[in-house]
Amino acid sequence: MVGRTIEYGEVDSTTLRIQLRIYGSAFDIASDVPKTGRVLQLGDLFDSKEEDPARALLERHALDGLVAAGRAPTSGPGNRWRQGASRADVKLSVEGGAQLLEQLGDGWRDVDVVRLDQDLAGGCLLLRGLFAAGLKAGMVVSFVNSQFPPPLRFASLDYPALPKALHGCSLSYLLDHLRPLGFHLVRLSGPYAAFVHATRLTPNIGPQDPDEMECYRGSRVWGFSPAPSIDLVREWFFDFTEIGSQEIWSRCWGNLTKAFWFPSSEPGFLLYL
């Protein structure tokens, strides 16, 4: 097992290369399919660098971008990003996703890429609500909180006191909600995953619906610190077949509520099997 932890928000050259490879290779999978030329970014890009994967993809393919629940970049050559609803105007929930789609308008109901960034607690619920309300996309690239291995379904809520290390959602949670919509997991680095819609897959992509356990086992970066130790993540993953899913869930819940103090009876996240 090659998992390790990094500081939350750390973006080193290796992480950037991984993200760029995910974006570029997954986007090129559907290179022969007519595209909308639009990228929907969920999360902030204001302080991002020009080599940010979403910005690099936009520049490389001359796409148009819209930022919602965050701020659009204001610099860069030929800046093609538009400002959508601000973070303060977006409810990070399933219901908020439906409301956001209405705000986006008909021109942004069909996009090439949806990118969900790591700075949105409740972002996975927002993404779920967008698709439930009718959003169509060729590819989803999402931050994955890989501290929660399969088969754990984890998703953060929009909770003010939630530690940043608990933002995002697990791979199994994303697959539960994207697979029924026709999306297939095609790339997984650990902190980022790419899903391509069946209408845009080409024969050379590899197996459809690869085993998520095997994909997770091969990922390089599994979590963020400060957070539950990588030893606990190993325990949750490798002990699954020996002690069963219910015991793994119980241990994970106990580890989290012990490691992080929550000021009310609501922990600020979903955790189930």
Rank of each mutant, 00 (worst) to 15 (best):
S13T: 15
H184W: 09
A133F: 04
F46G: 08
L188M: 08
L127F: 02
L201N: 00
G122D: 10
D44H: 09
P203C: 05
G244H: 02
A132E: 15
F154V: 11
R82W: 02
G70F: 10
D106A: 14
C169E: 03
P53D: 05
L104Q: 00
A72T: 04
L152F: 13
R217K: 13
C252N: 01
F262N: 01
F27N: 01
A121W: 03
V67K: 09
T15L: 13
C169Q: 03
D106V: 08
V111R: 09
E212W: 14
C124E: 08
R128Q: 14
W261K: 12
E242A: 07
E102A: 14
R80W: 04
L130S: 00
E235W: 07
T36L: 09
A194N: 03
T14E: 15
P263T: 09
V114R: 04
W253S: 06
E214V: 12
S250L: 03
G105F: 02
G190C: 01
G9W: 14
L92V: 07
D47E: 14
L178V: 13
F195Q: 03
W236A: 03
G3M: 11
G268D: 12
S48Q: 14
P203I: 08
L126K: 04
S75I: 13
D231I: 08
L135T: 03
D209Y: 14
L101V: 12
R128D: 15
G122S: 07
V11G: 02
V221P: 01
L116M: 15
L16N: 10
V111N: 05
L66D: 06
D28C: 05
A121S: 12
H177C: 04
D117P: 02
L256N: 00
L135Y: 04
G168P: 01
D47H: 13
V233H: 01
L16W: 11
Y23M: 15
R115T: 08
V233E: 01
L63Y: 08
L116W: 01
A26K: 04
